[in-house]
């Protein structure tokens, strides 16, 4: 049982939990957090695939991919949050 196996499986479990959250959550904010969990899980699988038994150095390509993925995900999160805020303002305006 290597680090790659342990963290890879953990990543898959996190992805699965996120999936559950996206499908099940009724709340906008919670769904977004669940999507972020999915992203974290997928990233973990990618990085686990780059792990090599020491002393070999890990494969740098998945690391670069995951950094890209993190930046992409924070952008998407910010957009979704802006939509949530705007929607909340409009909805409370019309309710009032």
């Amino acid at each position: 049982m290597t680090e790659a196996t342990i963290y890879g499986l953990a990543g898959l479990a996190v992805f699965g939990l996120g999936l559950m959250g996206v499908l099940g959550a009724a709340d906008r904010l919670r769904r977004l957090v669940a999507l972020n969990l999915c992203a974290g899980g997928a990233a973990m699988v990618l990085v686990a695939s780059s792990w090599r038994p020491p002393p070999a150095a890990p494969d740098p390509v998945p690391h670069a991919l995951v950094i890209t993925g993190i930046v992409v995900m924070v952008s998407a999160t910010a957009v979704a949050l802006a939509l949530i805020r705007r929607l909340y303002s409009l909805e409370t305006d019309t309710d009032a």
């Binding site: 963290y7 990085v47 890990p58 993190i70």
Partner: peptide, 14 residues
């Protein structure tokens, strides 16, 4: 976890 997987760049970004 990234640190344990020898991915310091990812850990920094995270």
């Amino acid at each position: 976890g990234w640190a344990r997987l020898v991915a310091p760049d990812v850990a920094l970004a995270e």
